[in-house]
């Protein structure tokens, strides 16, 4: 049954109530923009750093929007955008077993080695 009366609330209402939610839904599918992750190199010589995400219709729009959102104060010389679905990540819950081989190899650290004081520049 279609609901012709949309009730709008203007203040603090409890979690379980919801106002005129229906209107946004129908048009959503046509204009759905995918999510992109944004990486910015702030200065020549530095790496690209992840700064956040945004929605855009395609890569060119994503780059232009990233410029407007993340570099208003000249904080970038280079922008990378990647659709979020193409980012693959390690599983934090498996971190313990995933990184375990490195945890007991203390000989990878320079401080493990005791050299006499006379040895210079090492």
């Amino acid at each position: 049954m279609k609901n012709f009366i949309l009730k709008y609330y203007y203040g603090d209402i409890p979690e379980d109530k919801s106002g005129g939610a229906a209107d946004a839904r129908q048009t959503a599918t046509q204009s759905d923009w995918p999510l992109w992750e944004v990486f910015i190199r702030s200065k020549q010589g530095l790496d690209h750093k992840h700064v956040g995400s945004l929605h855009a219709a395609d890569a060119q729009m994503a780059i232009e929007n990233a410029r407007d959102v993340y570099t208003r104060r000249m904080e970038g010389v280079s922008i990378w955008v990647v659709e979020s679905k193409y980012i693959h990540a390690s599983n934090p819950e498996e971190a313990e077993s995933f990184y375990e081989p490195a945890s007991d190899k203390v000989y990878r650290h320079p401080t493990f080695y005791n050299l006499p004081d006379e040895v210079k520049h090492m």
Binding site: Y9, Y10, G11, G19, G20, A21, G52, S53, L54
Partner: peptide, 26 residues
């Protein structure tokens, strides 16, 4: 606003749902 909507999205709720909640008064 955009930085914060972006942060909200990392918690598993869509941008559409978030904006909708504002517009519906929720």
């Amino acid at each position: 606003g955009l930085y914060l909507y972006s942060a909200t999205e990392t918690l598993g709720v869509s941008r559409e749902q978030t904006i909708n909640d504002l517009h519906s008064g929720k």
